[in-house]
């Protein structure tokens, strides 16, 4: 037997209807490897609402409760209350929603669940737009990105607003655990999922989930682009355990240009715009390092 670096047991079946090279498929695969089979998922309208397969098929070995787009937070609250009423203690309740269903449409239900300290894990797989419905911009779409609702052209109508900082929003709720994970670092991902499982209260996991059709890139680059996001410090890997921030992967400090140039959605950016993205990334990274060294 060859030793593998992540648990070998699979909780997904092949045959999901995700696109070739889908990052969200990897997010689910690693998450369940960390959490195990005593897990129940609440999934709203998002890519993962269609990815388990056509009825009557399901690519997961754990149960799923589908909810409306805005109701993931309510779904996990209800599931938890039901398990508590039945006296079931060993089940991990997980909300699994996309970026639109988290930072835009699902924010109020999530905020309520966090405020009540619902005992559940909330995973946001962030593909940075409403990919399932045809790549419309969301609050999590980064500045300067092309989407079908920010189509550019002669008017240069690309996204003009920065990405919503969901990690800061969640920390403001005083939750016990929040972490960022990447599909390029599965060992780190599984470790954080296991840690989240061992804690109580609302735990939040932010996963960057590359989307080949939406990010306008070849499907074989999914893991490479996720790796570059970490190495360029654009998507740093860290965890906030009881208020204390710890960076779990420093990254190489590769220029952010390397991350942008393999994605068609950024192909229109000129040099000064790339420089301004680099500047923002550097500032955010410096702030993160400062916060880690201050132990807060």
């Amino acid at each position: 037997m060859t030793k593998t670096t992540i648990p070998e047991e699979e909780f997904t079946y092949p045959g999901s209807t995700g696109c070739p090279g889908c990052g969200a498929n990897l997010v689910m695969r690693y998450l369940l490897k960390g959490l195990g089979d005593r897990t129940v998922l609440s999934i709203p309208a998002c890519c993962w609402a269609v990815m388990p397969g056509y009825w009557p098929s399901n690519c997961l070995k754990v149960p799923i409760l589908y909810t409306a787009f805005e109701a993931t937070g309510a779904g996990i609250s209800g599931l938890r209350a039901a398990y508590d009423a039945k006296g079931v203690k060993d089940v991990t309740v997980v909300g699994f929603a996309g970026d639109g269903g988290t930072v835009d449409i699902g924010l109020q239900a999530l905020s309520g669940a966090a405020e009540r300290q619902t005992d559940a894990i909330y995973v946001m797989y962030d593909n940075e737009a409403y990919m399932n419905t045809g790549i419309q911009r969301s609050g999590a779409t980064p500045w300067g990105a092309w989407t079908t609702t920010t189509p550019g052209g002669a008017t240069k109508n690309y996204k003009h607003e920065p990405k919503k900082d969901i990690m800061a929003i969640m920390q403001a709720h005083g939750i016990p655990y929040a972490a960022t994970v990447s599909v390029a670092h599965p060992e780190d991902f599984v470790k954080k999922a296991q840690k989240a499982k061992s804690l109580k209260g609302l735990r939040f996991i932010h996963a960057l989930s590359p989307c080949p059709p939406g990010w306008r890139m070849s499907p074989q680059l999914t893991v490479e682009v996720a790796r570059l996001a970490v190495d360029t410090h654009l998507f740093p890997l860290y965890e906030i355990d009881d208020g204390r921030l710890r960076i779990t992967r420093k990254g190489k400090g590769t220029p952010v240009k390397e991350y942008l140039k393999i994605q068609g959605r950024f192909s229109h950016l000129d040099e000064s715009q790339v420089d301004s993205i680099q500047k923002t990334v550097d500032e955010r990274w410096a702030k993160l390092l400062k916060r880690e060294s201050e132990g807060a």
Binding site: P14, G15, T17, W55, S57, C59
Partner: peptide, 9 residues
Amino acid sequence: ISDSPSTMN
């Protein structure tokens, strides 16, 4: 309820 594995796809 979906009750069959997706290996049918």
